[in-house]
Amino acid sequence: MNAVASNEFKILFTGPMGAGKTTAITAISDHEAVSTDVVNTDLAQCNKELTTAALDYGQIVLPDNSCVRLYGTPGQERFRFMWPILLNNAAGVIVLLNGEHPELLEHLEHYVDAFGAGKVPMVIGVGRLPAEDLGRLETLAMRLEERGIALPIFDADVRQQDDVLLLVDALLCQIEADDCRSMEA
């Protein structure tokens, strides 16, 4: 896994436009996410008025005054050059996908590959799934399994704080598991 600088704990939120990265960060950040929203000129890609053009930023101050930093990547492909910069020293990545999108499987592989292909702790949250459509999640998990990648994939409505917390908790469990691989047999 990536080395984490001793004074920094960074969680990255990524995914295509409109997947809910800004909303997810705002749901758990101490303050509303600092966003660099601009008017969306790519309505074909995603039908919303504003979109993030650089990055989102949120933070959670811990009881010992250290800080967990939450970064959201811009969703547009033309800002892809920023992804490895943001990924540097990240403790883990939360990928948010739109379950209604016809290219859901392609999006999954695209973001998993771009952010470490399973080598960095990662959780996938899929929004806008039809109720009880767990078969779609199974399909995504099996696609990764075929490539030897096992990642948690949950349905997640990022407007619900509990859903975002589940994603964060699963990510923390993965980071812990990486550290505990040295435990006594």
């Binding site: 001793s6 811990l62 010992d64 250290s66 967990v68 812990e176 550290d179 691989r181 040295s182």
Partner: peptide
């Protein structure tokens, strides 16, 4: 049994995880 990180790294991470 595979150690993947130096002892200080996990300790710091544990502290972050507990705090978070």
């Amino acid at each position: 049994v595979t150690r993947t990180a130096t002892p200080d790294e996990p300790r710091r991470r544990v502290s972050f995880i507990q705090g978070l």
